[in-house]
Nucleic acid binder design. Sequence first.
DNA 1: CAGCTGACTTTTC
DNA 2: CGAAAAGCCAGCT
Length: 123
Amino acid sequence: MSRKKTIKQSSTQKEYSFFQDVFDVVLQIPKGRATSYGAIAKYLGTKMSARMVGWAMNASHTSSLKIPAQRVVNRNGILTGKFHFATPTLMEELLVKDGLTIKNDTIVDFKNVFWDPVIELDL
DNA sequence: CAGCTGACTTTTC
DNA sequence: CGAAAAGCCAGCT
């Protein structure tokens, strides 16, 4: 279903940011899976760039919602944003708890656990 | 309104 | 393998 537009808040919530879309997608990432910034960007639209997704994650800690940002890595499966967590090792710890294997700041067999919103949601 | 910035990606050397 | 540059675009100052 096209839940892209389901994000639309009530009239009261006039402040609508594209961050909401990113958060919504990230929150739907199943446990034990991970996706890339580019995949989310592609799902949200061609006008979206990977940097916007990463930037949205930067704002995730400001959001009241709990965003599993550890499940979002770059296209190589490298934990590029780990330094933005409370501790540089927190991101890896969270992914390990999800059942993933992290080796040298990189998700082992990333392509196997890759979760593409375009395929899992839109399709 | 204009310039900066950024948790990315791809190409090139 | 690594460093550098260019493209990308919305939000912030």
